[in-house]
C-alpha cells in the first residue's frame, strides 16, 4: 500500500489484509511492553489543518507504539488565512525528511493532492478530508464489527477480548445501519464503500435534508425511517454525530429542532429495546448524548464505542506498518512473533 486516501481504493483482499494486520497489532497491545521496533528511524508527521484531538492522539499513539519518530504539525487556521499554501507546507515536510504524512484537512481532496502533486515522496494517510473520506475510521469500524460479529454462532464468541477473532474473514451477510448526518459525513462515505467491499449490506438512515443529492448510485439502501430500519434487525447500528451548527445553516437549518431530530432519528431507550440481542451500537465520537444517542444506549453493554477507540490504535498501527514498512503492496502480514 503506497498511500491510504480513500476507502474505495481498497479491494476486499486489501481490506482483509489491513484488518488481519490490525488483529496482530492488537494482540501485541495486551502485553506489558506495548512498543514494537518496526518503524524505528522512520518519521511520521501528523499534519492537522483541522482540530481533532482524538484522531491525532490515536495516530500518534499508533506511530509511537511502532517506534516511529512523531512530529505533530498543527496548521489550523487554514493555509489560506495563514498565507502559507499546502504546497509550501508539503515542501517543508519533504525537506525535513518525513517518511509518512498523516493529514487531516477541511478541504475534500487535500490528501489526494498531497499524494499526487509531486511535492512529497512520503506515504500519505488520509485522517479525514472535508466531507469526503476518513478511511481509517471505516477500517476500525469494520475491525470492530468483524471482531464481534464475524464469528457469530461460534461457541464462546462474544466473551472476553480475543484480538484475533474473525481473522481472514470479511463481513458477508451482516447488516449495518448508519444513522445521522450523511450529507456532511466522511465517516458515512468511507463506511459505505468499505463495508460493502467486505460484503456487508449497508442502510443509511437520515432525514432527507441530510442525504446528498446523487446518493442513488451508492452501493447501499437509503431510509428516512429509523424504526422501519431497526425492524429489519441490523447487526450493527452506527450513530453519526449531528453537529448543532447544522441548525443554524442557510434556509433555517437542516431539521426543525434538536427535539424533533432526537424523536425521529435518535437511538433512545425505546429503540434500544428493539435491537437484536447480538446487535452492537457504534459511534465514531464525540457523542452528543441526548441528541443522536441516549445515555442508556451509549453506556449499554452492547455499545462498543470505547472499544472502537482502542481498535483505532491497532488499525492505524496496521496502516502505518503497511504504508511505511516493507516495499509496497506485497508486504507480508506479520505474525506477532515477527512484530516482537
Amino acid at each position: 500500500m503506497r498511500h491510504l486516501l480513500d476507502a474505495r481504493d481498497l479491494t476486499r483482499a486489501d481490506a482483509v489484509q489491513v484488518l488481519d494486520t490490525a488483529a496482530e497489532m492488537a494482540a501485541t497491545q495486551s502485553r506489558e511492553i506495548k512498543k514494537l521496533p518496526t518503524l524505528r528511524g522512520r518519521t511520521v508527521v501528523n499534519l492537522f489543518f483541522e482540530d481533532s484531538t482524538r484522531t491525532r492522539i490515536s495516530f500518534e499513539t499508533a506511530a509511537k507504539r511502532l517506534s516511529a519518530d512523531v512530529i505533530n504539525f498543527s496548521a489550523k487556521g487554514s493555509s489560506v488565512s495563514k498565507g502559507e499554501s499546502l504546497k509550501d507546507t508539503a515542501l517543508t515536510l519533504q525537506a525535513m525528511g518525513a517518511d509518512g504524512i498523516v493529514i487531516r484537512h477541511h478541504a475534500s481532496g487535500a490528501p489526494h493532492l498531497l499524494a499526487h502533486a509531486g511535492w512529497v515522496d512520503a506515504a500519505v494517510v488520509n485522517a479525514g478530508d472535508g466531507t469526503h473520506q476518513h478511511p481509517t475510521q471505516a477500517l476500525l469500524d469494520a475491525f470492530t464489527i468483524r471482531r464481534h460479529l464475524a464469528d457469530r454462532g461460534v461457541a464462546g464468541s462474544g466473551e472476553g477480548f480475543d484480538a484475533r477473532r474473525g481473522v481472514g474473514k470479511d463481513l458477508a451477510g451482516l447488516k449495518v445501519a448508519i444513522v445521522g448526518d450523511v450529507l456532511h459525513s466522511r465517516v458515512a462515505r468511507s463506511n459505505v464503500q468499505l463495508l460493502t467491499t467486505l460484503g456487508a449490506e449497508v442502510t443509511l438512515v437520515a432525514p432527507p435534508t441530510l442525504v446528498p443529492v446523487g446518493v442513488g448510485t451508492w452501493p447501499c439502501t437509503v431510509s428516512y425511517d429509523l424504526d422501519a430500519t431497526l425492524a429489519e434487525r441490523p447487526d450493527a447500528v452506527m450513530m453519526l454525530r449531528v453537529q448543532r451548527e447544522r441548525m443554524s445553516a442557510a434556509g433555517g437549518g437542516y431539521f426543525p429542532s434538536p427535539l424533533e431530530y432526537s424523536r425521529l432519528y435518535g437511538l433512545d431507550q425505546r429503540r434500544l429495546a428493539t435491537l437484536a440481542e447480538h446487535a452492537v451500537i457504534m459511534h465514531p465520537g464525540p457523542m452528543n448524548r441526548g441528541l443522536e444517542i441516549s445515555a442508556q444506549a451509549a453506556d449499554a453493554a452492547r455499545s462498543v464505542v470505547v472499544e472502537q477507540v482502542s481498535n483505532g490504535v491497532a488499525v492505524r498501527m496496521a496502516v502505518l506498518y503497511l504504508t511505511l514498512a516493507g516495499s509496497g503492496t506485497a508486504a507480508p502480514v506479520p505474525t506477532s512473533k515477527e512484530l516482537a
Partner: peptide, 24 residues
Amino acid sequence: PRLTDGSQMHEGVVSAEIGLRGWP
C-alpha cells in the same frame, strides 16, 4: 446565490461521492 453558497462543483453523483459542496 443562496442555493450556491460555498458551492464547488456540479451537485450530483460525483459531488456526493467526492465530498465537494454542490452547485445545483
